[in-house]
Nucleic acid binder design. Structure first.
Length: 573
RNA sequence: GACUUGGUAGCUCAGCCGGUAGAGCAACUGACUCUUAAUCAGUGGGUCGAGGGUUCGAUCCCCUCCCAGGUCACCA
């Protein structure tokens, strides 16, 4: 990233000055009243041509085909692209043809925002187009957009495809690859459909702290920060579960929150340091009830996004209409490995892992070992929505003990396309049991499990006042959106995925050059000549610099005053 | 964190055995009043990711580093 401008950027800045010289404000302040949009026109013009005898549209120029005194251009607004047709003598009815010959043909560029008033018509080749009668510049673009070409078959020719550039400059990505906007539109629909579903049931959306003194509710490494006034450490939440349960204690029957969670762990195509989770808690329910709720909710969400309950994900068509298959964790391992682990002790599980060539380490307890077997042998097989139920107690410190099965808890996870999408419990509301379970986590932490859950005394105090039987659910929204939009990386469903900072080339500020006597308008020229710092400039031959400045001035057709030689020599003192 | 692939013009990419770079699009100049990957003629545009090393000479070979992608590990 150099501060020196490219040839095309310099030319666009000159066009900007020329527009101003012509009395045209390249960034006008006043409202521009739009009366139509591209998609509306292309969808409805042929059925209702009379409605489009006068339209005003606005957007970016994305393509121009100039043929002397007539031109076609493509205007892109938030809904799509439409072709516009400009005739010199229509937009310049008087003698003065400046608006067409100079402004449109010379001073406008791909990427500029313009507003256009005219009438919709059909070209000889049958394309719905707007015949322009008035042209207004709304915003000049100073950086050239990548030009993505599409042919008649829809093949993309010079795609803007580099993932690094696409994620760092999402604004460019979505401008030149507008099809990716659909992912984010669907993401928005997923969240609003889910919110609508919950609201219809009478449950309440709430907000709980993101800055937490204790990072509870999940097992993960947190981001740590510090509050200056209170002079205390704080953590960005890794979960909001314990706060939502406090609200159930407080007497709300159903509370839910869509919120960002933060986990200070690895990044890959399914993990971003901050991600969106939805958690909901409903009083007087259990995890059996929750399974049915999730089936209804996800079916409704899928229909809201796709119109039907099924979605194509890679080679699989996934059907979100319930009921979903229910399989206990032990039965799922039995089904896919033929091994019954239900009665095994820790030693037995270790030797089973060894038989299955699953790597384990000494810090792993019984629950973790079973989870390892499950992850390695079962998960990938669960393509259609499947509930895995009844987890070992050791891996689930916040869930209620199973009503009939010793050593298990009332928990399910929903797996779709081989990935975990949701996690739910009959919530543990026995405060004494809860304290013991968290103490066991402390022991695991002592064994070296740095993800074991922390003790939260205030949460336990809340439980001691009494929490009604409650079922809780968490859904990873990013992963659900990945599924429903058929994307294989989380970056594609996040507007701004986390990236390392861009490297900055060491560049002096304009003021540094001005301070040694360089006129402001010449600083860019020096940058262009490769002098990014004052030191680099001073190391050069003064006479050569003076000559080269003249050369650059001529080459770039700069209409700025050449500094006299004595001034240039002064830079080197 | 490990392995691996890549980083060359505004964008997408070539670049042979080491001799300081090419194409298409975009840009610029000109022609053109129904084009649509517009066309035609011409012209410019590069710190070859950064820094070292080897060499008479490095985009190319070697080393270190930076950034990104992929795979794996980690991530109840």
């Amino acid at each position: 990233m150099s501060i020196a401008l490219s040839e095309q950027e310099i030319i666009r800045r000159e066009s900007l000055q020329q527009l101003r010289a012509l009395g045209i404000d390249p960034y006008p302040a006043e409202e521009f009243k739009v009366t139509a949009q591209a998609q509306d026109i292309t969808d409805n013009f042929e059925a209702h041509p009379d409605t489009y005898k006068s339209v005003t549209i606005a957007g970016r120029i994305m393509n121009r085909r100039i043929m002397g005194s007539a031109s076609f251009a493509e205007l892109q607004d938030s809904t799509g692209r439409i072709q516009i047709y400009l005739k010199r003598d229509d937009i310049c009815p008087d003698e003065d043809k400046t608006l067409y010959n100079t402004v449109f043909k010379k001073l406008l560029d791909i990427g500029d925002y313009v507003g256009v008033k005219g009438y919709v018509f059909l070209t000889q080749t049958g394309e719905i187009s707007v015949h322009v009668q008035e042209l207004t510049i709304l915003a000049k673009s100073l950086k050239p957009l990548p030009v993505v070409k599409r042919d008649e078959e829809g093949n993309i020719h010079d795609g803007f495809t580099d993932p690094e550039s696409r994620y760092r400059q999402r604004y460019v990505d979505l401008t030149v690859n507008p099809e990716f906007k659909q992912i984010f539109i669907k993401r928005s629909k997923v969240i609003s459909a889910m919110r609508n579903y919950f609201n219809k049931q009478g449950w309440m959306e709430v907000e709980t702290p993101i800055l937490q003194p204790v990072h509870g509710g999940a097992a993960a490494r947190p981001f740590a920060t510090h509050h200056n006034t209170l002079d205390m450490p704080l953590f960005l939440r890794i979960a909001n579960e314990l706060y939502l349960k406090r609200l159930i204690v407080a007497g709300f029957d159903g509370v839910y929150e869509f919120g960002k969670m933060f986990r200070n762990e690895g990044m890959d195509r399914t993990h971003n340091p901050e991600f969106t989770a939805m958690e909901i808690y409903v009083a007087y329910k259990d995890y059996i009830w929750m399974m049915e709720m999730v089936e209804n909710c996800l079916e409704e969400v899928t229909r809201a996004v796709h119109g039907i309950a099924a979605v194509q994900v890679g080679p699989n068509e996934i059907n979100f209409a319930g009921p979903y298959t229910r399989l206990s964790m032990y039965d799922s391992i039995l089904k896919y490995t033929g091994i019954d682990v239900s009665a095994m002790d820790e030693a037995g599980l270790r030797s089973t892992c060894a038989d299955l060539k699953i790597e384990v380490d000494a810090s792993m307890g019984k629950g973790k070992l079973i989870d390892e077997i499950f992850s390695a042998k079962v998960e990938a097989n669960l393509i259609q929505p499947t509930y895995i139920t009844d987890y070992p107690i050791e891996m689930t410190p916040l869930a209620k003990k199973h009503r009939t099965k010793d050593g298990l808890v009332e928990r399910f996870e929903l797996f779709v396309n081989g990935k975990e999408i949701a996690n739910a419990y009959s919530e543990l509301n026995d405060p004494i049991d809860q304290r013991e379970r968290l103490e066991e986590q402390l022991i695991l932490a002592g064994r070296g499990d740095d993800e074991a859950m922390a003790m939260d005394d205030d949460f336990l105090r809340a439980l001691e006042y009494g929490m009604p039987p409650t079922s809780g659910l968490g859904i990873g929204i990013d992963r659900l959106v990945m599924l429903l939009t058929n994307q294989s990386t989380i970056q594609e469903v996040l507007f701004f995925p986390q990236m390392r900072p861009e490297k900055k080339v060491k560049v002096a500020t304009a003021d540094d050059f001005i301070n040694i006597g360089v006129p402001a308008e010449w600083v860019q020229v020096l940058n262009k000549m490769g002098f990014n710092t004052v030191e680099e400039l001073k190391a050069a031959n003064p006479n050569k610099v003076f000559n080269d400045l003249g050369g650059m001035r001529k080459k770039l057709k700069l209409e700025i005053t050449m500094p006299v030689k004595e001034v240039v020599m002064g830079w080197f003192e």
